[in-house]
Simulated scan of single mutants.
Amino acid sequence: MRLTVLGGCGAWPTASEACSGYLVEHEGFRLLVDPGYAVFPRLLRYGTAEAVDAVLVSHGHPDHCADLHPLLRARALSDAPPAPLPLHAPHGALDAVLALDRPDMLASAYRRHDFTPGDRFEVGPFTVSTRLLPHHVPNAGLRIATPDAVLVHTGDTGPGDAVPRLADSADVFLCEATYVHRVPEADAPYLLTADLAGHYAAQAGVARLLLTHLWPGTDPSLSHAAAAERFTGPLTVASPDLTLDVGTAAGGHGPRRPA
């Protein structure tokens, strides 16, 4: 399994970085996870719109799904439209972004596969196990597995025991870390810090921690240092075009089954 970071900025994109967006590839299958603001132009550096095989979305906030719209336009309005794109997201999460055009314009470009956090299903060569994690809207933590690799993505989440349970023994733990040490009181139940991300990574025994969704303008070195106080394993801050091999080929834990 290969993970490519297309963007890792929280809330809104900056001049140099898109919001959350990740390309996950295995056996020639290309899964786009959380296509947030400004992700689509980054995606085009790695292939055409038609080359995406499926989309998986953790929740309906636009910094995690807004660029699904240009992706679907590029497919629907091409000279030779490809087969409908499978869209996997929690129930209702994509309603707003899919309503940006008149209904008949994009209807043939996608097929919805709505799920309830807690469901488990197959997407191409991946087994996806989901878990409800606390956020302002229903958010599905994602455990994306092949026989020899596990990638866990929190989406956006507040603190809780469900986070390390989701991440248990993952090869790569892609964890939201919006703030460095302290979340503002109003958002404290719904977002994480880099410090907590490090704590949960250590608790879960993951092979590698990848911090993402930093608040725009945050110094990545501060987030890295805060997480490193809790987690002593390999640790990286998500940055555009970062690519990681996930699993045994990358020195991971070896064969396992999805949780």
Rank of each mutant, 00 (worst) to 15 (best):
T127M: 04
V123G: 06
T127V: 15
N139L: 01
V150P: 00
A140K: 04
H136Y: 13
P147Y: 09
S129D: 09
V128T: 14
L132T: 01
L132M: 14
P147H: 12
V150L: 01
R131D: 07
D119A: 12
F126H: 11
N139M: 04
P138A: 06
G118W: 04
R120G: 15
T127N: 02
V128L: 07
S129T: 14
L133C: 01
E122C: 09
G118F: 01
T130G: 05
P134I: 04
N139H: 03
T146E: 03
G141L: 10
P125D: 10
F126Q: 09
S129G: 09
A145W: 02
I144W: 07
R131K: 14
G124Q: 13
H136M: 14
P125V: 13
L132I: 00
G118E: 02
V150Y: 00
R143G: 02
D148S: 14
T130W: 02
R131C: 11
H135G: 06
A149N: 12
S129N: 06
L132Y: 00
H136D: 03
F121C: 05
I144C: 04
T127Q: 11
T146N: 06
S129P: 00
T127C: 08
G141H: 04
L132C: 02
N139F: 03
V128F: 09
F121Y: 10
G124M: 12
